[in-house]
Measured scan of single mutants.
Amino acid sequence: DLSGKLIIKAQLGEDIRRIPIHNEDITYDELVLMMQRVFRGKLLSNDEVTIKYKDEDGDLITIFDSSDLSFAIQCSRILKLTLFVNG
């Protein structure tokens, strides 16, 4: 049953990962930690990372904090994230 699940599709460069999320109350910090685990070796804990999501118009919107993240989650059951490393 995928109805209650949130799917995160995260892209870093050419690498795209699909991550099912069971807890929608994820904070921004938890998201960043999850991305560091998912992209281990490509995304380091001291990297400056910018996370953006695609909205319904196809625009890339920056996620700065947990309220941005929860808004993005409300918009779509499949959250398409693009990561930019400013390392």
Results as ranks from 00 to 15, higher is better:
residue 60 L to G: 04
residue 5 K to W: 05
residue 82 T to I: 13
residue 73 I to N: 01
residue 12 L to Q: 02
residue 77 R to N: 09
residue 30 E to K: 09
residue 42 K to V: 10
residue 8 I to F: 03
residue 79 L to Y: 05
residue 83 L to V: 11
residue 4 G to R: 07
residue 14 E to N: 06
residue 54 K to G: 05
residue 23 N to L: 04
residue 5 K to S: 10
residue 60 L to M: 12
residue 53 Y to K: 05
residue 74 Q to T: 06
residue 71 F to S: 14
residue 34 M to R: 07
residue 1 D to P: 02
residue 39 F to K: 01
residue 58 G to Q: 05
residue 45 S to G: 09
residue 26 I to M: 06
residue 26 I to F: 07
residue 74 Q to C: 05
residue 57 D to C: 14
residue 79 L to N: 10
residue 71 F to W: 06
residue 44 L to I: 04
residue 65 D to P: 02
residue 51 I to C: 03
residue 81 L to A: 02
residue 36 Q to D: 04
residue 43 L to M: 10
residue 26 I to E: 00
residue 74 Q to D: 06
residue 70 S to K: 12
residue 60 L to R: 03
residue 14 E to H: 07
residue 67 S to T: 12
residue 55 D to S: 15
residue 77 R to F: 05
residue 10 A to V: 07
residue 62 T to H: 05
residue 75 C to S: 14
residue 65 D to H: 05
residue 60 L to P: 05
residue 80 K to L: 14
residue 43 L to K: 03
residue 15 D to A: 14
residue 69 L to A: 02
residue 24 E to R: 05
residue 22 H to I: 12
residue 27 T to Y: 01
residue 72 A to K: 01
residue 53 Y to F: 11
residue 87 G to E: 11
residue 37 R to T: 12
residue 57 D to N: 15
residue 64 F to G: 06
residue 36 Q to V: 10
residue 19 I to K: 01
residue 32 V to Y: 07
residue 22 H to Q: 11
residue 70 S to T: 10
residue 6 L to T: 08
residue 11 Q to S: 06
residue 76 S to Y: 03
residue 11 Q to C: 05
residue 41 G to M: 09
residue 85 V to I: 12
residue 68 D to L: 02
residue 60 L to F: 14
residue 49 V to G: 02
residue 30 E to N: 11
residue 78 I to D: 15
residue 14 E to L: 10
residue 59 D to L: 12
residue 70 S to H: 14
residue 72 A to L: 09
residue 25 D to Y: 07
residue 84 F to S: 12
residue 23 N to R: 09
residue 8 I to E: 00
residue 46 N to A: 04
residue 55 D to M: 06
residue 18 R to L: 14
residue 16 I to Y: 12
residue 42 K to H: 08
residue 83 L to H: 01
residue 53 Y to I: 03
residue 83 L to A: 02
residue 80 K to R: 11
residue 32 V to E: 02
residue 34 M to I: 11
residue 46 N to I: 09
residue 43 L to I: 11
residue 2 L to C: 11
residue 43 L to C: 04
residue 64 F to N: 12
residue 26 I to V: 10
residue 22 H to G: 11
residue 56 E to G: 14
